[in-house]
Design a protein around this nucleic acid. Structure first.
Length: 659
RNA sequence: GCUGGCGUAGCUCAAUCGGUAGAGCGCCAGUUUUGUAAACUGGUGGUUGUGGGUUCAAGUCCCGUCGCCAGCUCCA
């Protein structure tokens, strides 16, 4: 005999005022949904983080209610809870969008509805009933949703007050549970996430069990904003952007120093981990990309290049021949394509978007022996990818970047060991850089793929075995692998909660095939090698963006563009400052002297704003004692310390990790 | 690429209904000689992203374009 948890709890006298739902067999069930009386029943209280999702989804219902009351004729679609809140997508009959003023109005209406302390109710109806109900209401999107519900599933309606929605739940018992509600933004979103579908109006919001929890969240958001790498990049003179090269950072001296130091750090590891570094061309004949498959599959993300002669052909409007340009620039807007119509080029080159094809060319240029394998080829080459406008973002999604990229050519038998070695390398680097929250995803075979099932079995198991051996938790992204092979992706979250893929390791059977790569085995016959694509930091640009936020601009001593700022108390200390600057620099320490006529407080403020790890105050006492009044970014004032001791300390802290 | 918002001094921002473009910081000069998070005075700084239109008059209104921001889609 099924019974609702609400009744069950009431019978047991456990229906406390703060109970949002129950947990049965580890699953959250709201108080409305009938269950078989379980042996064990845990209650989920309002302040439990697990209750957030229920609160947020219920808030989405209230928002949809408010919207429909204020904007009659607006259709509802879906409104799930998400990581930091919820959203609901609407279709407005007039195709208008919601303004900020609308949001305020909607929020006020929501508060009104919540104050009504309406119970949520759950009703199960037949498919026909549901369809009849919603078609009467003119909710065409809901009809599509009902049709998409599997036949063996109940169709439940959730109501509060006079409003209802087809919904699986779960929901809170009463609108009074919805305190701490805020609408945050509006945006367009495609129906069912398909670009070809109509665009709906999405309203984002968030909700917490209390006003206090909401305020704490809003404050945290603000703090995250303060460490946004785009803001810090400007404040710390790390990089700049220009309209003249959209989505392409200009690294200023301080940023370039950090950038190069990261590369240098990885390079030092390569030296001891059996990698050989190469330098490869930037622009290649189109034939290379045809062979690698990029021309067919990746062309719209590539920058094209051609010589002055060819460009002149187009400009002068010479006889059409060769490749139609509209065909080359597949990603161009319709307007650009119109302009290009009739223009042809004999010869087109592609600016490299990836290093792998040129590494294949290098591998294939010689007869290779199994004794050379595994061959690990590293390349920090600059890549260009034509990212569609609207997807770029600070340093984390740019059109030009370089990666700590390497390709490992090996035998199928060597693959697993190489993956394990990579995992060691990877975690050594991330430990050294103080990252401890990294999410691993194993992306497995997609529907459209190359290679035999046996190959995929081997590759996927090599990846998962390496993870299991290292006892690393991971999420399987079913079908998310590349068409040429499965991969591991390493994701990290930035200050504002956006997740970015940094490192990766991918198994590739495709390119060795396309480039007909071979090595001579111990049996004196030719074999095809496996190719592993791998990067640890991934795009240096993206990594740096995430890293700036991770450390809030305070780079560790070994990476900091300036390690110590010497601040003179008065003019008469300037000579001493320059004298010890030379001594520090002779030991390889990066020094900046502030001998301006700013007061000491001002100098300290400026240096601290640049997050310089050490400040050395120089006054009469220091000059006399050949000392530095040291102040550490993390430890505060350390008092007057002998120059030699300071040098020793800085030299020690300048060492790269893992060295 | 799509939906919406926004582009004013190097930076952060102001400018009421369409009516003489401002402030702070920075920068430059001078004064001050300073002991642990902002000394004082003066000066400098603009084709209001850009092209067009409406108007006696446009930072403000309209159209195009470029860029940025949020989200969507994309990221073999």
């Amino acid at each position: 005999m099924r019974i609702s948890p609400k009744e069950l709890l009431a019978q047991r006298g456990q229906l406390d005022k703060d109970v949002v739902a129950v947990i049965v067999d580890g699953k959250i069930v709201d108080l409305h949904t009938p269950i078989d009386p379980p042996e064990k029943l845990d209650v989920l209280r309002q302040d439990n983080p697990k209750a957030l999702e229920i609160i947020r989804h219920s808030t989405a219902h209230v928002m949809a209610d408010a919207v429909q009351k204020l904007f009659p004729g607006t259709q509802v679609t879906i409104g799930p809870a998400i990581d930091n809140g919820f959203y609901y997508d609407f279709a407005r009959p007039d195709h208008k969008h919601f303004t900020d003023a609308d949001l305020a109005q909607i929020e006020a209406k929501m508060v009104e509805i919540i104050a009504g302390a309406h119970d949520f109710r759950r009703d199960v109806v037949s498919r026909d009933e549901a369809k009849k109900l919603f078609s009467q209401m003119g909710e065409t999107f809901k009809l599509e949703i009902i049709d998409a519900i599997p036949a063996d599933q109940d169709i439940s309606l959730y109501r509060h007050g006079d409003w209802m929605d087809v919904c699986r739940g779960p929901h809170v018992p009463n609108t009074r549970f919805l305190q701490g509600v805020k609408l945050t933004s509006v945006a367009g979103a495609y129906w069912r996430g398909q670009e070809s579908n109509p665009m709906l109006q999405r309203i984002y919001g968030t909700a917490f069990p209390s006003k206090k929890a909401l305020d704490a969240y809003l404050k945290q958001l603000e703090e995250a904003k303060a460490r946004d790498h785009r803001k810090l990049g400007k404040e710390l003179d790390l990089f700049m952007m220009s309209d003249l090269a959209p989505a392409s950072p200009f690294f200023l001296p301080r940023g370039a120093f950090v950038y190069n130091t990261l590369i240098d750090f990885v390079r030092k590891q390569y030296a001891r981990r059996g990698y050989r570094e190469v330098i490869t061309p930037q622009i290649f004949d189109k034939a290379l990309w045809e062979r690698s498959g990029h021309w067919a599959n990746y062309r719209e993300n590539m920058f094209m290049a051609f010589g002055a002669d060819a460009a002149e052909d187009v400009h002068e409007g010479r006889t059409p021949r060769g490749i139609p340009l509209s065909d080359v620039f597949v990603s161009a807007s319709d307007k650009t394509k119109e302009k290009l119509a009739g223009s042809h080029l004999d010869y087109v080159c592609g600016c490299k978007a990836m290093n792998c094809p040129s590494h294949c060319v290098m591998f294939g240029a010689q007869r290779r022996s199994y004794r050379e394998l595994p061959l690990r080829i590293a390349d920090f080459g600059r890549l260009h990818r034509y990212e569609r406008s609207g997807v770029t973002h600070g340093l984390t999604r740019v059109r030009t970047f370089s990666q700590d990229d390497a390709h490992i050519f090996c035998t199928p038998e060597q693959m697993q060991d190489e993956i394990a070695k990579f995992m060691d390398f990877f975690y050594a680097v991330y430990d050294a850089l103080a990252f401890n929250k990294i999410e691993i995803r194993l992306a497995t075979r997609p529907e459209k793929r190359l290679g035999t099932d046996a190959m995929w079995d081997q590759a996927e198991s090599a990846l998962s075995k390496a993870l299991d051996e290292k006892k690393l938790a991971y999420i399987v992204s079913e079908g998310e692998g590349a068409f040429y092979g499965p991969k591991l992706e390493f994701h990290i979250t930035d200050a504002i909660g956006r997740s970015w893929q940094l490192g990766t390791i991918q198994v590739d059977y495709n390119l060795p095939e396309r480039f007909e790569l071979e090595y001579i085995g111990a049996d004196n016959t030719a074999h095809r090698p496996v190719m592993l694509h791998r990067a640890i930091l991934g795009s240096i640009e993206r990594f740096l963006g995430v890293y700036i936020e991770h450390v809030a601009g305070a780079f560790p001593v070994w990476m900091a563009p300036e390690q110590i700022a010497l601040l003179t108390v008065a003019d008469r200390h300037n000579d001493y400052a320059h004298q010890i600057r030379a001594e520090l620099e002779a030991k390889g320490i990066r020094v900046v002297v502030d001998d301006s006529n700013e007061k000491l407080g001002g100098k300290i403020r400026n240096a601290r704003n640049l997050r310089i790890p050490y400040l050395g105050v120089l006054g009469d006492k220091e000059v006399e004692a050949r000392a530095v009044a040291l102040r550490s970014r993390t430890e505060g004032e350390l008092g007057s310390i002998a120059l030699d001791t300071v040098i020793e300390r800085l030299v020690k802290e300048s060492a790269y990790p893992l060295s």
